[in-house]
Amino acid sequence: MDSMDLEVLKTCARWQQQGKACLLVTVVTTWGSSPRPVGSMLVLNAHGQVAGSVSGGCIEDDLIARVQQQGIVQSVPERVTYGVSAEEAHRFGLPCGGTIQLVLEPVGPRSQIAELLTALAAGQLTRRSLNLRTGAVHLSAAQPSGQLTLSNDVLDTIHGPRWRLLIIGAGPLSRFLASIATGLDYQVTVCDPREEYRSEWTLPSVPVVHAMPDDLVLEMQLDTRSAVVALSHDPKLDDLALMEALKSPAFYVGAIGSRINNQRRRERLKEFDLNEQQLARLHGPIGLYIGSKTPPEIAISILAQMTAIKNGVDLPEQTSVALAKESAQIGMSGAECALKSA
């Protein structure tokens, strides 16, 4: 599963190869409420086919209608603003007087879409600088903290995963977690030194590294845009890696397991001289409580918790798996007592 931005770029390249004229559309500025954030992209061709999204659908419909009526006539990028008036904002589904500005770029040889995809396939985080006066593009290395900027008639956009996820263990749950995380624009690495698990891995877009997890944690030099999830169920693999991850600036560190197993894990980690503050960073049982039972459901639960923390959302304590299950158990015990006393 590709991220939406990568899907847009791949579709753009494919249409170029097929000789179809197309427009690459990027959200560059928003005011008030808007359906899609700055940096969102879509590509549409002269036949009205679309990949990606810049709104809830109404702006896409207007762009398609324009292209079908007029064709793709631009020779250089064009800025277009939607939602200036209250009537237009309502028409295009922009709530609370929201306004959105787009750059419409006619795609051609100077767009360097194929070159950008080559860089992304090599794992390079890339800045794409578009000259709005000429349509010329320059590619360069980018930093994870880079953001879209629009100044002096140059639009700079950042492409490539800016978040990293290390998954320890190559079991079925890891496969679903890796697949969905890739769609969320994470650069995913799976680590498992066990040959029997690596040989059954069926996700070619995500590499499985044959290394000890704690060595890989140190090698990756985790930063505030990194997450580590331990899913091997093997303390020999998980514990040392978790110890190193909890000492790092990683924004999320979690481990699979029951409440009892996670309590035992915390007791073991105390022996590695982790302090209470570091131990408190460990999410386990992992994920948000959504009643998940199957690997796909558990993967969604884990990524929901990761996403909330990444986005700075202060989750209520009741959403944790441990507290929710404890509350449910207390509720069942209370019901049993009521039945006995009836």
Rank of each mutant, 00 (worst) to 15 (best):
I290M: 14
H90R: 15
G169K: 01
S292R: 02
E276W: 12
Q124V: 11
L246C: 12
A141C: 08
A142C: 01
P77H: 10
L102H: 10
A308S: 12
A170T: 06
R281I: 04
S129E: 08
Q112P: 05
I298R: 00
K20P: 04
G39A: 10
R264F: 08
G52W: 07
I180E: 01
T307R: 06
R264P: 00
L42T: 11
R175L: 14
P296G: 06
A299N: 09
L166H: 01
S258P: 07
L242A: 08
L177C: 02
R265E: 03
P295F: 05
G93S: 04
R128L: 02
V80C: 02
D215K: 04
D273A: 14
E105T: 05
I72Y: 11
L315R: 02
G39M: 05
S327D: 07
C96E: 15
G287Y: 08
L323Y: 14
H210T: 12
A211P: 02
T149F: 05
P95M: 00
L116C: 08
E200W: 06
L6A: 08
Y82G: 05
S34Y: 09
C96S: 15
D5V: 08
L94Q: 01
W201D: 01
D234K: 14
V154K: 00
A142F: 09
L94H: 00
L231P: 06
R175V: 15
D62W: 05
K270L: 15
L155I: 01
T11P: 04
P249M: 06
D239W: 13
S248W: 10
R266W: 07
R133L: 15
R128I: 01
E297R: 05
K236P: 05
L44Q: 05
T134S: 12
A335H: 14
R66N: 12
M243H: 15
S258C: 12
D5M: 09
C191H: 01
L130H: 04
V229R: 00
E326N: 10
L222T: 06
C12I: 04
E105R: 00
D185F: 02
D2V: 11
Q101P: 03
P35N: 06
L44C: 07
R36F: 06
A114M: 09
